[in-house]
């Protein structure tokens, strides 16, 4: 579905991604883990067209356009780090705005799907997005991305700053989303969260993919255990 080959990305003179290659197949749940500053966010921003990069990116066999609007049109939807909600709009309007790319859709049934996944959003329907708690905002950000009916959902650090109980809710939601047929590419620092429901995992360190494998292989790996799982 998504194929990236030899991707190089620079910020001014800083070489942020170095010959990154990865692939995500239809229906997969793939996680990219790695420390702060490894280039995870840059990778997702490059896929969604917010950042320019050199290399081959293709989606469903065709080159990926270098314009966020066109990328969204293909069904590649990015739920960004920092959420980027519309703070002065209601929860409902935020969700409806997520369906901007769709020509024909029934707003009520689409909203219903999101409210099934995150019931708290139904209660908050009329509240301004800025009045929500961090966890609720994250759920709204994921809900807004889902409203665009993604084929491939890009998620950037959805657990940043959230309590363990909320992380669990979100992990379960991601599993459900993936089970419903949406392909997921997750960038995440919290390794237990990233490994929980993923089929495959990449480890990105200072712009280089240093390891790829299944969650089981990652849990068994000494380097991953020492550095990312606190030796447990």
């Amino acid at each position: 579905m998504l194929v990236i080959e030899d991707l190089n990305v620079y910020y001014a003179k800083a070489h942020v991604l170095k010959n990154v290659s990865l692939r995500v197949s239809q229906g997969e749940f793939v996680s990219i883990i790695g420390p702060n500053g490894a280039g995870k966010t840059t990778l997702l921003r490059t896929i969604s067209g917010l950042k320019d990069g050199q290399g081959r990116l293709s989606f469903n066999g065709a080159p990926l356009p270098r314009d966020p609007v066109k990328v969204v049109q293909l069904g590649v939807i990015h739920c960004p780090e920092g959420r980027h909600l519309f703070p002065e709009m209601s929860v409902k309007d935020n969700l409806l705005m997520g369906a901007f790319r769709l020509k024909n859709f029934d707003p009520e049934s689409e909203l219903e799907k999101i409210y099934q996944l995150f019931p708290i959003l139904r209660e908050r329907e009329r509240q301004m997005a800025r009045t929500l708690s961090g966890g609720e905002q994250q759920m709204l950000a994921i809900g807004r991305a889902l409203m665009g009916r993604p084929e491939l959902l890009l998620l950037d650090e959805p657990t940043l700053g959230l309590a363990p109980i909320v992380r669990k809710t979100i992990a379960e939601a991601l599993k459900q989303i993936n089970d419903s047929g949406v392909t997921i590419l997750l960038a995440e620092q919290n390794v237990p969260f990233a490994l929980a429901h993923a089929h495959r995992v990449y480890l990105l360190e200072t712009g280089v993919i240093v390891k790829a494998g299944t969650p089981e292989e990652f849990r068994a790996d000494e380097h991953v255990q020492q550095v990312y799982l606190g030796g447990v």
Binding site: V69, H78, P80, R83, H84, E88, M89, F100
Partner: peptide, 20 residues
């Protein structure tokens, strides 16, 4: 009009839902 409001509040968020 709502599209304008959304863009005003977060232009990156707007771009990511497919607003030009």
């Amino acid at each position: 009009g709502k599209v304008i409001l959304a863009t005003a509040q977060d232009h990156e968020g707007a771009a990511l839902v497919g607003i030009d």
